[in-house]
Design a protein around this nucleic acid. Structure first.
Length: 481
RNA sequence: GCCCUCGUCGUCUAGAGGUCAGGACCCCCGCCUUUCAAGCGGGCAAGACGGGUUCGAGUCCCGUCGAGGGCACCA
């Protein structure tokens, strides 16, 4: 069996939609699992909407996700170019082939003429569906003037194919008409461009969204007309908004870059997307490697689904919590930009790692992590005034001074040592730890919610810890005056 | 209107004729606890509807209803 060749063919008409990423992901997983090739192709034939900026966003987004391509923009390959507008001569040549073999013809009807006919029909019967009447099908002259190339579509029979996820799909040819292959300006329409490209690029399996399922029969006809082998097809159910509408910007974040900017783990994004429309028993959380080894079309579902931001967040949380899923080095690399954005200098690698260990069980995104990490690196820490007003009061002053004194009573400074010294003092002074907890927390972190006291002390170190306790003590005394 | 699809807890899903219909998210309760989380334990909740086939159907067949995609010189 030859190695599969699959592709992802986005249009550079905006951000990279999360539904598009899922399509890319499934193709990519299959290529990586089977040792096949994953090809990236840019379908920019909609010149009205295609932009270079958007093309770059697609490339950047895939890069961030770690979805790499074997052939395509910036990578080259034996079947290029990989951008459709650079392939115009190829489409022209293929259109000529079909005209020569009688599978296609030049149509000189103008859009205006066709629209007029459409109008007339609409007037006669508002419910009727206009189909191209075959006006130019058998004309042999070749007048001056613009023309489109149309496919000579059969009206009888049907097209049958076996979808890798939907099974056998039969479509009567009566549903087809003489669809346009090449526009008058020589730019191909979707179905023609896709088939010529997939054919010449040696694509063996086309996996795409279910919204393309209706394009498959005409595309299969084209392969037949070219006498080319038909690739396999796999259609993926759609990802809808929670209310069942098509998922779009109005339903919240839908572009990959937004999730990147919100501090999501790229692997978590892959994980959530993979588990949407695909399953592997009861397993929910996957590493990238597990995704590759577990993936298969047979486990793809057929029903459309609704995007669930909460579940997505939960999956991200699983990835940030797990040392196996997100190594400490990866965590450092991902969270650092968010810290920098907040004006925090966390260049001390060892301290950052130690600090991360205390918060990674609580932060669901890197943005949350950066917020939780903030007090470790900011001197003095930001102080929650409500918390200070409540806990740094006169009554806390003796507790804070006692706490400082207890900590100063020894040299060892690690979680165990500071805990032992503190507990010894608390016991001797008959102070319940509950009385120390919140004042000490506010003193050290500026907040009422934080990792455990001993962990915080250990990460902060002796000097910073004592300085913060002293400052808080001073404030508590002042509050009493 | 016509063509093609789909239909299990609120959501993502497991299930390949015999299961107390399982897991996860959400939500609720409890335990743990120096705070907040996390963790652990428990709970809530489902096969669209109607007919068949079968000893037995979420699983197979038919119909109905509901939802989605398409019917372009968009992709």
């Amino acid at each position: 069996m030859t190695k599969p060749r699959v592709r992802f063919a986005p249009s550079p008409t905006g951000y990279l939609h999360i539904g598009g990423v899922r399509t890319a992901l499934f193709n990519w997983l299959w290529a990586r699992k089977t040792g096949g090739a994953f090809i990236l192709r840019i379908e920019d034939t909609d010149q009205e909407r295609s932009t270079e900026a958007s093309r770059q966003i697609i490339l950047d987004s895939l890069g961030w996700l770690g979805i790499d391509w074997d052939e395509g923009p910036g990578k080259g390959g034996a079947h290029g170019p990989y951008t459709q507008m650079e392939r115009l001569p190829i489409y022209a040549a293929h259109a000529e082939r079909l005209i020569a073999s009688g599978h296609a013809f030049r149509c000189f009807c103008t859009k205006a003429e066709l629209d007029a006919q459409r109008e007339v029909l609409k007037k006669k019967d508002p419910k009727a569906q206009f189909v191209y009447p075959g006006t130019c099908r058998s004309r042999s002259d070749r007048p001056d003037g613009p023309f489109v190339v149309r496919f000579n579509s059969p009206t009888e029979g049907s097209v049958t194919y076996v979808d890798k996820v939907f099974g056998e799909v039969v479509t009567p040819n009566s549903a087809q008409q003489d669809f346009v292959l090449l526009r008058s300006d020589g730019v191909p329409l979707y179905n023609f461009g896709a088939v010529v490209d997939d054919m010449t690029m040696g694509i063996t399996l086309v996996a795409r969204g279910r919204d393309h399922m209706v394009n498959t029969p005409p595309q299969i006809m084209l392969y037949g007309a070219f006498g080319a082998p038909v690739p396999e097809f796999a259609h993926l159910p759609m990802m809808l908004a929670p209310n069942g509408e098509k998922l779009s910007k109005r339903h919240g974040a839908v572009s990959v870059t937004e999730y990147r900017d919100q501090g999501y783990s790229p692997v978590a994004v892959l994980n959530y997307l993979a588990r949407f429309g695909w399953s592997f028993g009861d397993k929910e959380v996957f590493s990238k490697e597990e995704l590759i080894s577990s993936f298969g079309w047979e486990n793809c579902g057929r029903g459309d689904g609704k995007f669930d931001a909460k579940k997505f967040l939960a999956i991200d949380f699983e990835h940030l919590k797990s040392d196996a899923l997100t190594t400490e080095d990866a965590y450092v690399a991902r969270v650092r930009p968010f810290l920098a954005k907040n004006g925090v200098d966390a260049s001390d690698d060892a301290k950052l790692k130690q600090a991360i260990r205390t918060i990674r069980g609580r932060a669901r995104t890197y943005i949350e992590a950066a917020e939780m990490l903030d007090f470790y690196f900011r001197e003095p820490p930001k102080v929650d005034e409500a918390a200070a007003a409540k806990f740094l009061v006169a009554a806390s002053a003796p507790i804070l001074s006692g706490f400082g004194a207890a900590l100063r009573a020894g040299d060892a400074w690690d979680e165990k040592a500071v805990e032992e010294r503190t507990n010894a003092w608390l016991a001797a002074a008959a102070i319940p730890i509950k009385d120390l907890g919140q004042p000490a927390r506010v003193a050290l972190t500026g907040k009422t919610a934080s990792p455990g006291l001993w962990e915080v002390l250990a990460v902060l170190g002796r000097d910073a810890s004592l300085a913060r306790i002293d400052a808080a003590h001073a404030r508590a005394l002042g509050a009493g005056a």
